[in-house]
């Protein structure tokens, strides 16, 4: 029972991060039908720039904010320089372009920050809180609360603001959105910015718990992609549910089987889901039209 509680805490913590990455995936996917394989790099860039700004003497909140801003700029540049010029690209082409972008960003990070691993100090102390025999770090709570806040903000943005609704319109039908006067290009740009901000926040939230290096983004990005598929590609709330679920499955699986196979468990689950229900948990079934 206590062990289960402990699993629940670590599972939801790592699941929150997956949820944020998956949410970023689905925002970009909705807006532009592109699966952005560089999503994980947003997480890494957010965390690494915050780490180095903090080292450089900026106060913690400002360092975090600047880290997010830098990542947003990278996200905007990605849309402007790599996605927008490749209009009419096929699925395979966009996959390769974003993989190329991810390798490129990793290469730049390697040049700037080297191969060493770094961490952030916890937001508010590292004194564990005990619940029964399970322990929870203040940072775990920060991760979950931070994620919940980010998810609610995104939901508010899409449900209540004109701009959010305009982006949704683009995802349903670009041509129709254009005809009613929505600046489609600008909406795509905003989606990339928003998705980068989510990724960077995830990175800064988790950096005090797991360490970061130039290569940390790859696995986080792929897991986020798994979570997005688990929840149903393109469904924002599905992405959140998928992320949390994936975090839990992985933690419990690692606990009972072997921690070395932790990453394999996530991918095994995702393959099973794809085999049984290719449209994900909350996704709609697709069918060919002739």
């Amino acid at each position: 029972m206590d062990q289960l509680l402990q699993f629940l805490i670590s599972g939801l913590t790592v699941g929150s991060i997956y949820a944020l990455v998956a949410l970023g995936f689905s925002i970009i996917y909705n807006a532009s039908d592109v699966v952005n394989f560089a999503q994980g790099e947003f997480v890494m860039i957010g965390a690494m720039s915050a780490i180095f700004l903090l080292k450089g003497g900026l106060p913690y909140p400002l360092a975090a904010l600047c880290g997010i801003s830098i990542t947003v700029l990278v996200g905007l540049a990605l849309d402007k320089l790599a996605i927008e010029p490749a209009k009419n690209a096929t699925v395979v082409t966009t996959i390769i372009i974003t993989i190329g972008a991810s390798i490129f960003l990793r290469g730049v990070a390697l040049l700037i920050w080297g191969k060493e691993i770094y961490g952030l100090p916890p937001f508010t102390g590292d004194k564990p809180i005990t619940i029964g025999t399970a322990t929870i770090l203040p940072q775990n709570i920060w991760v979950m609360v931070g994620t919940a806040a980010a998810v609610l903000a995104v939901k508010y943005f899409f449900d209540k603001t004109i701009m959010g609704k305009a982006i949704m319109a683009c995802s349903f039908n670009k041509k129709a959105a254009f005809l009613v006067g929505i600046n489609v290009k600008q909406m795509l740009l905003i989606s990339y910015g928003l998705s980068a901000a989510l990724g960077a926040s995830a990175g800064i939230l988790i950096a005090p718990i797991t360490f970061m290096s130039y290569g940390s983004g790859v696995m986080l990005g792929l897991k986020g992609f798994c979570a997005a598929i688990l929840g149903g590609m393109g469904s924002s709330m599905g992405a959140v549910v998928g992320g949390l679920l994936l975090g839990l499955i992985e933690t419990v699986g690692a606990g009972f089987i072997s921690s070395g196979y932790k990453d394999a468990i996530a991918f095994f689950v995702i393959m099973l889901v794809l085999f049984i229900r290719p449209s994900g948990i909350l996704g709609k079934a697709e069918s060919d039209r002739v």
Binding site: V35, I229, M233, G260, Y261, F268, I270, F275, P278
Partner: peptide, 27 residues
Amino acid sequence: PILRLKGHYLAMATLGLGIIVHIFFVQ
């Protein structure tokens, strides 16, 4: 089962296969 999938889903499933096999080699 893999090739029943299309587009991004196919990409994910083949990627998953590759990663699982690689982790098996390591572990």
